[in-house]
Amino acid sequence: MAFGSVQAILDAAANEPLWQAVLDDDCRDRGVSQQDSLAKMNTLWAAMQRSTREYDPDRRSTCGLSGGQAAKMAAAKGTIAGPFIQEVISTALMVGEHNACMGRIVAAPTAGASGVMPAVLLPLQKRDNLSDELMVQCLYVAAGFGQVIASRASISGAEGGCQAEVGSASGMAAAALVHARGGTPAEMAAACGMALQNILGLVCDPVAGLVEIPCIKRNVMGAVNAIAAADMAMAGLNAGIPCDEVIDAMAAVGKSLPSALRETGEGGLAATPTGRKIAERL
């Protein structure tokens, strides 16, 4: 049975690592062996790695709006963010653009937000020389928290706005990062909750209805926010509101968003003069 609350995951993680509790639950839920579940998660991790390798800076999206920006970001000199965050930013752009250009990605939790998880995990793995095994554990942690968000709130922009897509991805990534750095389950919950708090209310307003503007760059925001939330949680900062309550607030906010701000391409950036012009041109 899928986890219905973050508290339920924390309870299950009292006697074993949190990622293991999520893995065990998956085995019970789908009636598969640990080996099967792990093999599947390994495939997803390999596909995330592959999506950045397959990125082609010369490729453009079907409508011509996107492509090539990640390479520019990666090549930029003297960034304020410094080399590590610069790599996070360019990885998020890379996967976002790859997705927009009909490349192969891993929906996490959706295609629009597919850049967030690889953007935080790949540069960290490289910098700290972390094992693939640990990265796969991180994906279990992320999926566990994502499951709660999906069941209590939503992971669909059409239902809950972009807080449900890039927001969920950011919360999931924050929890995963805490695991990567050896943090506790309570810190994972705090990190996820803080990341979500920061993105509460984010609207879904894709220009011309396409997963390009602002989606690609929102993956950057989701990734950087996840890193900040994970660092805050591991520094022992108090999240203020428990993660479950934040998720419930996210559900309530999503319900009160007008439909123009839920993937219809009628409000927000899509409704700006330039946004409309682009939509007309296509």
């Binding site: 998660m41 250009c101 009909m102 990605i105 390009e212």
Partner: peptide, 9 residues
């Protein structure tokens, strides 16, 4: 939640 592997967007 995690997956599927798919061609975008």
């Amino acid at each position: 939640i995690m997956g599927p592997i798919m061609v975008g967007p």
